[in-house]
Design a protein around this nucleic acid. Structure first.
Lengths: 359, 359
DNA sequence: CGCAGCTATGGTAGCGATACCAGAGGCGAG
DNA sequence: CTCGCCTCTGGTATCGCTACCATAGCTGCG
């Protein structure tokens, strides 16, 4: 207990939150007005490093000292400066997550799960919105890396050469999500969109459908599902497929328009939509036109959003455990940061076809 | 723009003798392996401060020098370190936004608009998820402030004394949102939830309803709407109100259950739900029971989410310009950071009652 | 011709924290 | 009584960047 009473030159006691007190010479040329670790140390009569330990690794400090320092911290309202801490330690305790959009519900659950898990481990998540065509991804990755995150979460696996180079240079754990590839940048948690397309095609073919319509958004993952679907149906005889492409992001209204387009050009017996939102729109359009679902027209979506089980009839779709993607991505990242896991990791979370009332 | 194809063999920090070279003595005790501003300066034959200017304030540097430095930056793959920059300049170019949840669609559009606007102004947004009962808000505010954000966006106006103290000590612009009060911490963009409740009450009273049911989530803003509703109907004669409370966050399923609860206890002619999601659930429940909407039962929601105009009948609700809240919050924050605006600002964005098919 | 008043650039001194290693006690063992 | 080891604490040297001020050329004006 080598604790000393504050030195005579100590700044005014706890009355004022110790703001703007001169520190070095007669005047402080760049006073900030906020309490620093050094201020706390002086008031507590210990060295700065001890205060740092109380905050970050309490186990290394004796209970008495810790309690006293903690008391001073609370009295002064000291808030550590992680910019300085991160600079000195090279650990920002920040993890960046890049998502196309948060207004589209499909990705947010994964991000929320990812964030929750990392928060519990002492990390904060910096969210970057890359926009739908991922136009901003390069700039966003650069901007985000300038904060020196300890790891990066990416949505999707399609990244420009410039982005990949930035990521490799950064030498931090990177987890890609929502897709599947044998050659991830680093780690990967997702599922095969082609397999989804194939599975849905098999499902609909087995029900006897041959005249297909697709209402399809033009983003990369949706197109992968389309490829899988196309490949599978192309093996069957007498199959016709018409595609109504709509711009991402999907909306219910675009779904209505998409079905309208298909019906203007032909009479599909089964329509597969690239998302539940589009399928919901198509369902509305069918209802508005008096088309019986599923007897005259079968409908399938993708995503299994909450509303899917509450439409009339309830929407058949493809279920993906979205929260699990975020959770497992977080686990991978943490294992890598802690140095437990080395080398690439790929996790396929799979998917389930949910057969409800529209097929 | 880019004069050279970024060859993979270009001086990556690893093997390059220049980039990661020892700096001070014979060996660099804490070499990081990443390119620093000083490295770029040495390679370009200019001083560090000039490189800093090229990156941050290109106007101050002659075009020739700028081009040359820019070239070196691209060749080396230099990524500025904003931890260091923020520490030195006391501007983190980070703005924190605290939201209860992003899986609940109601808040995300405002956040997205806020983020987009600030991105254009050179800021990044750090998203903090406070959880629904705001249990984590104190810890979250402290954690977020340790990154020294230049401003803070809060959802709601109910904050603990500890939180308020932290915010005041931080001395940064704070904008609260989604609510209205004469005494904001700093700035405020929102609308009066009590006024919403009153307006809906007047609307339903005018249609002759006297037997009301509420399916209500137990969060603070929802309760403010309830107070407004109660106050207004209490002025009318022969009115009965029954409330089925459900835990936040709202879901469609909870809406179904909520209406079931009300119907087990009485026969309301009009049910007002604290959110569109709950109202959608109530609508489903009514359909399942064969109750005619709106003739036997009128329904209203709140929020005007996209699906509201596509239910059957289309959902009457209260519309709020959510994106506008985020956009205007961003404008306030930027004006304050730039020192243009001083003193408190309060913006009431209002709301609109949307009368569709369920009333 | 001399002196402002630019513009373009550089030197110095931190910002607030942590890494690294050293040192001071305390305590049981030889 | 001395040694070795463990626990707790402190001193020093950075981390990578920018604020602040100084300086060197140059232009234009009286």
């Amino acid at each position: 207990m080598s604790r000393k009473t504050p030195k005579p030159s100590a700044p005014p006691p706890a009355a004022s939150p110790a703001a703007g007190a001169p520190r070095h010479r007669g005047r402080s040329p760049r006073a900030t007005g906020s309490v620093t670790l050094t201020d706390v140390a002086r008031l507590a009569g210990v060295s700065p490093i001890t205060v740092s330990r109380v905050v970050n690794r309490p186990g290394l400090v004796s209970p008495d000292t810790a309690a006293h320092v903690q008391d001073v911290i609370e009295r002064t309202g000291y808030v550590p400066n992680l910019l300085a801490g991160g600079l000195a330690s090279k650990r920002s305790r920040l993890v960046a997550a890049l998502v196309p959009s948060i207004t589209n519900g499909i990705f947010v659950e994964a991000v929320q799960a990812f964030t929750d898990r990392l928060w519990d481990a002492g990390y904060q998540v910096l969210l970057g919105l890359s926009g739908y065509p991922a136009t901003r991804e390069d700039a966003l990755v650069a901007a985000v890396l300038s904060r020196r995150p300890d790891a990066l979460y990416l949505t999707g696996i399609n990244h420009s050469a410039a982005t990949r180079k930035l990521l490799l240079n950064a030498r931090i754990p990177v987890v890609e999500t929502w897709d599947m590839t044998p050659t991830p940048i680093d780690m990967l948690v997702g599922f095969s969109h082609e397999a989804v397309g194939q599975a849905v095609a098999r499902h609909l073919l087995a029900r006897g459908h041959r005249a297909f319509g697709l209402v399809w958004a033009d983003d990369a993952r949706a197109l992968a599902r389309q490829r899988g679907f196309m490949r599978e149906v192309s093996g069957a005889p007498a199959v016709r497929v018409d595609v109504a492409t709509v711009p991402a992001p999907s909306t219910l209204t675009l779904g209505r328009q998409g079905l309208a387009t298909l019906l203007a050009r032909g009479t599909p017996t089964a329509v597969f939509c690239s998302s539940d939102l589009l399928a919901h729109g198509a369902l509305e359009e069918a209802r508005a036109r008096g088309i019986a679902v599923p007897s005259a027209l079968a409908l399938m979506g993708f995503g299994d959003l909450e509303f899917a089980q509450h439409t009339h009839p309830a929407l058949s779709t493809v279920h993906v455990d979205r929260a699990s993607i975020g959770r497992r991505a977080a686990e991978l990242v943490l294992a890598r940061i802690d140095g437990i896991a080395q080398g690439p990791s790929v996790i396929d979370v799979g998917f389930i076809i949910v057969d409800r009332g529209t097929t």
